[in-house]
Amino acid sequence: MKAIQEFTKGIIKENPVFVMALGLCPVLAVSTSVQNAIGMGAAATFVLVCSNIFISLLKNFIPSKVRIPCYILVIASFVTIVDMAMEAYVPPLHKSLGIFIPLIVVNCIILGRAEAFASKNGVFKSMLDGLGMGVGFMLAIIVIASIREFLGVGTILDIRILPASYKPMIAAILPPGAFITIGLLMGLLSILQNKKKSKA
């Protein structure tokens, strides 16, 4: 596979959220506003790229028996770095993302890519893979957050789109809204992919 494809596959074809249904917990929980989504997406992408690079570097050094604890250590270290850096430099974002920053540690996309990709591929490819998956994750969460913020508050990125007389559909920013939105988007994407396949 070409290097560039390692990057692009994560965006649609193997999108971690819509296609592989990985890491749904943070997607459902923090997609209440686009701002949160960008923050979460960026934090997860950073951790994903860094952990992929390091795990790929260390792949010959880490014995397979203890590889999972080692991966978790590497990931947890990066997450803690992100957590502390966010609290120090962007406290409002840190406050609104709350517990979900530390929980990036258990985001299965990151461990999944470490195990499935970075431990078998070179550093450059692993970096591209991490970046692609991270961008795919971020795009998914931003799309969901846009829909939910638009319907549930009437704004996008805190900019008012719908008139102030709009009575917000509060269900959209409550948990059920997250499930319904993600279900409809997954369905839509699979319809589109099926159409593409049947044409081909």
Binding site: L58, F61, I62, P63, K65, V66, P69, C70, L73, V74, A76, S77, T80, I81, M84, A85, E87, A88, Y89, P91
Partner: peptide
């Protein structure tokens, strides 16, 4: 070998985190 590797990784990441904590703690 696995024990040693795990130990090394722990020590290194611990050291890095301690350093970053020192940098950010006063800001926080």
């Amino acid at each position: 070998r696995p024990t040693l590797v795990l130990l090394i990784i722990c020590v290194i990441s611990g050291a890095i985190l301690a350093f970053i904590y020192q940098q950010t703690a006063p800001l926080i």
